[in-house]
Design a binder for these strands. Structure first.
Lengths: 157, 157
DNA sequence: TCGCTGATTTGACTCGATCAAGTTAGCCGT
DNA sequence: ACGGCTAACTTGATCGAGTCAAATCAGCGA
């Protein structure tokens, strides 16, 4: 196995003014592109790599990464905080009401209209966060399918 | 002649298929137009009217009201759940990063663009929730005004 | 290599919210 | 008007996410 990726990640971590440690690389590796994961999932994945890692360390690392702009934190209502490695572009999210699945959405209308809340009661707005609510493909299919046949059902996601 | 407000609220509660009780009227009265309040604040206001009321009852009532569509629940990242009496129109919210103050925002661009997340990964979207982040007037003023050198500019807004 | 200081561990603790069992009281039918 | 069915409320335990704090460990620059 040739360690290709870790070098790059290490540079980014160091460039952010943070020390490069095995826990940090493992936490970063637990956030694949396009994925949105909670602290426990990230901790589990990191522990698989390292053998052991305290939950507190994962919280600290994720906070440091979020502050440094290496990861982004989202918090859909009714869910624990989720983290993703996609940063820089201010994309949005869809959340499934049934299973909680989350996916990225590129802003369809650009940022300008969203950032013009005329009549903002004197607020100075610097960010517009959009969360779309609905049902994912799997859950939609499960509902439209009569409860009898369980050919393509997914229990937990 | 309509006696007072409570009659109207009672009708709405009953029309929603819920029993009319003093705690419910008190909780409703604790949600003035344009206000966004957390459970503890609502409980406090309701207790002022009734003398006593369990926190659990407030949770139950707010859940029943939310399910019945009498109140709306919002949950900005980093805050406990907030409730408001404004329902029906899908307006949005601005939240102050410093003091957490929340205000209503009427959707500036209409609903159509926001509800067209092209490439929604197979999701069936039925709602677009927008949260604007920024600073309220008071906090903006406090920052731009260099009041003294020592700390202690923390306002308990 | 040394040592300063940031990173990690451990464990207690806060806070928001839910669950469960038992009692109270609103509302419908007689 | 009254009695019962059942929703609504009380009380108290419990849970889950996240933070705080003290002590130990280790990255990295001198």
């Amino acid at each position: 196995m040739t360690p290709v990726e870790p070098m790059d990640v290490a540079s980014r971590v160091r460039a952010a003014g943070l020390r490069v440690t095995a826990p940090r690389l493992a936490v970063f590796a637990a956030l694949p592109e396009g994925q949105h994961r909670d602290v426990e999932t990230i901790a589990g994945a990191a522990r698989e790599r390292l053998g052991s890692l305290s939950t507190q360390a994962v919280y600290d690392i994720l906070r440091a990464f979020t502050t440094a702009g290496l990861v982004r934190r989202i918090e859909p209502a009714g869910s624990p905080a989720l983290f993703e490695a996609r940063v820089g572009d201010n994309h949005h999210h869809v959340v499934c009401r049934d299973c909680g699945a989350t996916a990225d959405i590129d802003c369809a209308v650009g940022s300008a209209p969203c950032l013009d809340p005329s009549g903002a009661a004197g607020f100075v707005v610097d960010e517009a966060e959009v969360t779309f609510w609905g049902r994912c493909q799997a859950c939609t299919a499960r509902i439209e399918t009569p409860s009898g046949t369980t050919s393509d059902e997914r229990g937990t996601a």
